[in-house]
Simulated scan of single mutants.
Amino acid sequence: MLQLTVLLAAISLDSDGREIHTCYTYDTSVEYRPNIKQLLILLVPSNNTACDIFPAGVNINVTIGNTDFATTVPLPVYLPYSYTISNFGYQNTTQIAVEGFSLPLDGLGDEISIDFLLIEIYSYAEITRIEILEMQTIISSLSECFYADMPMIVTKDSLYISMNSTGLCRIQIGALKSLQVTIEGKQFSFDLTQASLVDLKTNYNHNVKFSVNLNPGAVDSFSFTAQKPDIAATAYLLTNQGGVDTRIDLVFSEVKYDTILNFYSLSSMSLNDKAFIFTIISKPESLTALRAKLKLTGYQYNKRILRLIVTTNEQYYTFDYITSKYNALQLHFPFNAPNSLQTSNSNVYSFMNWLEYL
């Protein structure tokens, strides 16, 4: 990383405030991220105890200097020459992110070059100044808008995505238009009629967690995924800035159909050349959870399917055991095996099963 030259400027105050020198070392640096309009000030305290006097609420002034300009230009331009933070601590605050920061344009429409940056940290009574003679420009990746843990739960009618934002894409997500999702090759588009996307657009910030609930409005829109042991899904946010669409890809940490984990306290399988016999014992707490989930849907169910998926090293089979209601006392479920499925030492079996209500 490029190290920036820093001078602690000794400039007299126009107010009655007291200037404190050498609060920060020469390792203090600045990074500019033009694509997310952010100036990141990386402070390295000098451990000067005189600087401990600064309160939690301070203002940050950033002034840029360029020899092509007759005068220096105060930034950020969207605020009255200052940026305020309320959780400042001299020894602990090592990063200050000035959001919405963009450099002025020259007569040709390009951002001006910088000869120096003057950073002032001040309260009602104290001030310290740092002059920086170089600045590193970094393009932040739009793949870093969210932290990596992003699971998606699929139900028959809705998608639920858990997001934890990094805060690095405030400008882009502030211009959010829609979320595009592809599940098992089928495409779905969700616009800002979805309340949870409005919440994402409005409240996106550092380390804010979002529960995005997406409903296309059609009954059983995603029921086709219930038969998939693994669900393939991709998604991206579509934003628009100045008439230009920007795509922010989302990477799911897992995609699964809504389930009650560890539903059974015991399950076992026996098989011969004609049938699989599946034996299960349900947990009482699982049955309580199941009844609560069924009640929340508001639907009346008249069919119950116990689905068994058998995977060998050669083929893939799906079997359904259909009843009209759930009987917790029924422990054994037979599944007739086709002639092509023979027990053999050459086959390696794996099993997946679940209950589905229709």
Rank of each mutant, 00 (worst) to 15 (best):
Q3I: 08
L4F: 03
T5D: 12
T5Q: 14
T5F: 05
T5I: 07
V6M: 08
A9I: 11
S15E: 11
S15F: 04
R18Q: 13
H21P: 06
H21S: 14
T25A: 00
Y26M: 10
Y26I: 11
S29G: 13
S29H: 08
V30F: 01
Y32S: 02
K37G: 08
K37T: 11
L40V: 15
L40P: 03
L40W: 05
V44D: 13
P45K: 09
S46M: 07
N48L: 10
C51M: 08
A56H: 11
N61T: 12
N61Y: 14
G65V: 08
N66I: 12
T67P: 04
D68E: 13
A70Q: 11
T72P: 08
P74L: 10
L75V: 06
P76A: 05
V77P: 06
Y78I: 14
L79W: 12
P80S: 05
Y83Q: 05
S86C: 02
N87W: 12
G89Q: 11
Y90G: 02
T93I: 12
Q95N: 13
A97Y: 12
A97V: 10
F101W: 04
L103P: 05
L105T: 07
G107I: 10
G107N: 15
I114W: 04
D115S: 08
Y122D: 14
Y124M: 12
Y124G: 06
T128I: 04
I132D: 01
I132P: 00
T137C: 08
I138N: 14
S141H: 04
S141T: 06
C145N: 08
A148T: 11
A148E: 07
D149L: 02
M150Y: 00
M152V: 14
T155R: 05
D157Q: 03
M163E: 02
S165C: 03
R170G: 11
L176E: 00
V181Q: 03
V181L: 11
G185D: 07
F188E: 09
F188S: 11
S189N: 14
V198I: 15
Y204K: 00
H206V: 14
V208N: 05
F210Y: 05
V212G: 01
N213F: 15
N215I: 01
A218K: 07
D220I: 00
S221W: 00
S221Q: 02
T225N: 00
A232C: 03
A232S: 13
Y236K: 02
L237N: 04
L238I: 04
G242F: 00
G243R: 02
V244R: 09
D245I: 01
I248K: 06
V255P: 00
K256D: 03
K256V: 02
T259M: 09
N262R: 14
Y264P: 03
S265M: 12
S265F: 07
L271S: 02
D273T: 01
A275V: 09
I277Y: 06
F278G: 06
F278V: 14
T279Q: 00
I281T: 12
K283R: 14
T288I: 11
L296S: 12
Y299H: 09
Q300E: 09
Q300L: 11
K303A: 07
L308R: 05
L308F: 10
I309G: 01
E314I: 13
E314D: 12
T318G: 07
T318D: 08
F319C: 10
Q330T: 11
F333H: 03
N336C: 04
N339C: 02
Q342L: 15
T343L: 15
S344C: 09
S344L: 10
S350I: 14
F351H: 10
W354Y: 15
L355H: 15
L358E: 15
